[in-house]
Design a binder for these strands. Structure first.
Lengths: 238, 238
DNA sequence: GCAACCATCTGGTCCGACCAGTTCAATTTT
DNA sequence: AAAATTGAACTGGTCGGACCAGATGGTTGC
């Protein structure tokens, strides 16, 4: 479920990756007009249909803006883009996440999960607590025997469980769309803090939810995020 | 900016609308296997490429799941879909929003804007307050002379401004992706409460931000949403 | 100097052919 | 009779070339 290695790229995938890389690397800047579909198709030796389909995909990611009968332009993706843009950045850069991207992910987690925590604290049942303690124990049992990427997947699932239990399905929806980006974050986090520390925090969250302390749970999340960002900045300065 | 009337549909648009309608109406249920691309193409008298492109679009909306070389299946869109799914529902149903969709939008607004309000209360400048009062006055000045749809656009922009001023750009990103869905909501809200009441609330928000009362601003948002949902339910029962 | 014009370029749509992986029933082997 | 093998008939994925209509920008005619 985790590995999704692509050994051979299709022409369309190759095209999308190339343009994405060129835009994010700064070769093309927001407002620039990209070469025409025919031009790019001829240059890469592929069909115009493929280029067109690729541009459509880039447009849904918010990286480009298609102006019919006129041209395709690089969008101001940091302003008008959506979460797909973040996913694209992560998929391209792998584990080398820029500070801005990490900050964006954490801002989002605080908003979505913070609200989920507040809601869950208001409506949590005894079964919810038992369930959370159970999956936390599962993670602790296997933490030493699996890789950091797989462990990151479990942390993602744990936090998504908070959204599911809160009953606000739209929060879960959003968590799903941040999957790729979240995995990359958790992998970084686990490498920095270690698995034991991270799992302890899961138990602290559960305690606060059991005590129906919404503010406390929110503050634990917020302070953890602030601490992580501070460490990131101090490491960058070293 | 608001009107986006399509007088003539392309084959692809017609196909996407048809399948979307059939899925949301319940003709196809999650897990069902849809007819093959060739079958649908022949039935509608269009090219297979068009059907394929349409399925790709439906897949990005989270409505279907494409299993290569095997078939296209209806996705459990309420669980694995994303915000595009909500937009699709709104575009199909127009102003006739189901209760579940409205609830989802409001859950989302509370999470995103609630966080933006808290953040803004911590970092607001005097200029921010002046700016908010200025655009609020602008809305009040023109409220009586424009239609409810256009007014809804202004309310959307006002609330997006909260995200922008908070400095957390990812929240603005998410607000952008909810544009269509938000406009539909505000139009409903304004018809229910009237413009005057809604604009008064904008001023109350500004007062609380000026007082750096993050909890108060959050509670104003939350109570407003709860009240709206309660009115919605009581109307449904009449 | 200005307005009308038109060749050219753009993205949008569409088709029919081909590719490669999946599926499953008929066939062969054990 | 049961299990393994095969292979034909599907599936979605790719592709290039054709055509459309709107945008563009230089040229022509006034």
């Amino acid at each position: 479920m985790i590995s999704d290695k692509k050994t051979s790229l299709t022409n369309k995938e190759a095209f999308v990756r190339r343009i994405t890389k060129e835009i994010l690397s700064g070769k093309w800047k927001p407002g620039d007009r990209l070469p025409s579909e025919r031009e790019l198709a001829a240059e890469m030796g592929i069909g115009k249909t493929v280029v067109h389909s690729g541009f459509e995909q880039l447009a849904t990611m918010g990286l480009v803006h298609i102006k019919p009968k006129s041209g395709t332009f690089v969008a101001d993706y940091m302003k008008i883009g959506n979460i797909e843009t973040l996913n694209a950045i992560v998929q391209l850069n792998g584990n080398e996440l820029g500070r801005d991207v990490v900050k964006a992910i954490l801002d989002l987690r605080l908003a979505i999960e913070g609200e989920a925590l507040r809601t869950l604290c208001l409506c949590r049942s005894t079964e919810n607590i038992v369930h959370l303690r159970s999956i936390t124990k599962d993670i602790r049992d296997i933490a030493d025997n699996i890789g950091v990427e797989e462990l990151a997947e479990h942390f993602f699932i744990w936090h998504r469980e908070i959204c599911i239990l809160s009953g606000k399905s739209v929060l879960t929806l959003f968590m799903n769309t941040t999957h790729d980006v979240s995995i990359a974050f958790w992998a970084n986090y686990l490498r920095m803090y270690g698995a034991s520390f991270a799992i302890d925090r899961l138990e602290q969250f559960t305690d606060l939810i059991e005590a129906r302390d919404g503010e406390g749970a929110y503050n634990l999340l917020a302070s953890g995020i602030a601490d992580y960002l501070a460490r990131l900045d101090s490491n960058a300065g070293s």
